[in-house]
Design a protein around this nucleic acid. Structure first.
Lengths: 331, 331
DNA sequence: ATTTGTTGCTAAAACGATTAAGTTATATCT
DNA sequence: AGATATAACTTAATCGTTTTAGCAACAAAT
């Protein structure tokens, strides 16, 4: 019951290895094999349960049929779900996926890329970290296939798949305004990445239009000290003389800690206080408020990322920048 | 700036390819190279930024240095976290990880295994699905390296890493009894897998000891129709004449839907009603109850799984069955 | 009758690494 | 001095595919 190779099929049918290979891969232009022989070879391959040796094929072709996916944190359900769909869709296209983590740190992103490149992957779908441009630029310049996802890097000409974050944040803020809120706070990560900048801008735009933008209500949270920072921010916001009447949490991890901090400070989740947030969250079903959230089309993001990276891998060098729209959902 | 191979280093230093390979891999027993030359070759390799071609190496050695991890659902934070640690620890040992999903279905597990095996992986860490024994047995018999995780298959002699589910469930039920609950319900998946059987047994044991075991309070949920089933179960439990005073949710997905169903049925989350559950959950911080939960040592599970699979890959054929303990946490 | 074309197949190189089995040249031993 | 050992390196085979180039046989065209 040992593994079957082309050699074994060739021996059995008393033909050459090349003939078997050509018959199975059916590139009619090159060598030509008679229809009968092709049929016989295919039949025998089936009977003997021939499985091509992917590694030998890779060595010959210079392609591994593996793509790398580097996310910020695979234990975060948003990235977990993205990984799920990327994996599903890539499998359909005959590719495997190796996942790496950056933990939002450029140094760890660097390690992941190096380790994946040496594996080696044919291309990378990357959730870029803050200030990773300098490190990524050489790969881009060398035309190594890279697609950014979730965020992009304005200074680099790279394909990416993102959502319209400004629009999403605008809608999420607007829904609070429409409910009558005038003092709406924003909890957002303190960083210079596109998704955060755009979410902040959407928030600002909605409130400015409504004539009640107040920059003091923006609380910027440090990713590495999220629990503490969110807790402090919530305390400040709640204990301020003219208290807030709404909060927009600009990411799922911020709302996780935000909800917890609000609860611990005994802030009554009553209807005179409105919340909106990014991404579906387990607590949304529990809280005695109908909390609207931005629903990102994760499956679509995954599918498009795979499409783009496969496009690059196949040698089409056109850069595509895809911006998907999202909608507000109220369960 | 094209890729550097052994050939290039050899040409530059006017030595043979074999010499370069031997110098870099330093297998002193085989060919011997003078210390000076070794130093010079290593230096040059560094300068030229030589990266070994993993595929060529794999073809020669018959090893890919990739392990496959097949989980039930990578978008579930428990498995996401497990994947995170498996990946981290495997990377430390020089292995990459390819992740597959089974969605708790044996047919999808089958697809994942086939696709990963053809990639090919050196070994597989698998979260087994219900009734997958028949499909898995041939691989086990052929000594293909497999480690089961989270659950095991009593009928197959395979290495595994699980937690002591009976003990965990016993403790989680016991804590409710100690709070004074006498009518404690169990929400659990309807299947014949070890982790569920053992959790049910732990629950039964605790309540029997306390003299208040009532099989009617066990609600078995269908994984594929979880939302509906949980909702129905909660309704039955709450509206029964002699209502329950506690629930133990035997998995994180069950508690997610359970909390939601309880909330929607306006069940007051008051202190005369106690809950315990499996795994940390975002809603735990929010609910106005101190809900104890079973904290699984996910990092340890990941590390041990990797250790076992690498052991098998390296040819040590001993089967190890590891049962880790978990603790109850009250935040 | 020679050229040209077509069909059906095979030989052999290539992908880039590892490694068993030499081959020198020098050192050591009797 | 001659035999033997050892140090330092190289040659060439190998892993399993893919694919280029070529061979032989026969057909068609000039």
């Amino acid at each position: 019951m040992k593994r079957v190779f082309l050699k074994d099929i060739a021996k059995k049918l008393d033909v050459s290895i090349a003939t078997v290979s050509l018959a199975l891969n059916g590139n009619i232009k090159l060598g030509r094999i008679s229809d009968e022989l092709i049929a016989k070879i295919k039949q025998t391959a089936l009977e003997m349960d021939y499985q091509p040796n992917v590694i030998a094929r890779s060595l010959r072709s210079g392609k591994s049929n593996i793509i790398g996916l580097i996310v910020a944190d695979i234990s975060n359900p948003f990235f977990g779900t993205l990984a799920f769909f990327v994996q599903e869709y890539a499998a359909q296209k005959g590719y495997s996926v190796i996942i790496g983590n950056s933990n939002e740190q450029t140094s760890k992103l660097q390690n992941s890329i190096k380790s994946l490149k040496s594996q080696p992957v044919d291309g990378l779908i990357i959730v870029p970290t803050e200030n990773c441009e300098e490190f990524l630029a050489p790969y881009i310049n060398k035309k190594f296939p890279i697609v950014l996802v979730d965020r992009y890097l304005p200074s680099l000409e790279v394909s990416h798949v993102v959502i319209d974050n400004q629009d999403a944040a605008y809608k999420a803020t607007r829904i609070l305004i429409d409910k009558g809120c005038t003092r709406v706070a924003l909890l957002i990560y303190k960083n210079n990445q596109t998704h955060m900048i755009e979410r902040k801008e959407g928030y600002r735009k909605a409130l400015t239009e409504a004539g009640c933008f107040n920059p003091n209500l923006i609380k910027e949270i440090n990713y590495l000290d999220i629990k503490n920072d969110v807790s402090l921010a919530i305390r400040e916001l709640i204990s301020s003389p003219s208290s807030i009447d709404g909060i927009f949490f600009a990411s799922n991890s911020l709302s996780t800690h935000g909800f917890s901090a609000l609860y611990k400070r005994n802030k009554s989740f009553s209807s005179d206080f409105c919340i909106s947030c990014f991404d579906k969250h387990d607590a949304l079903d529990i809280l005695p408020l109908n909390i609207p959230y931005v629903h990102q089309p994760i499956e679509e993001i995954g599918r498009q990322s795979v499409d783009l990276i496969l496009n690059l891998i196949e040698g089409h060098n056109d850069i595509k920048k895809i911006k998907l729209s999202s909608k507000i959902v109220i369960d």
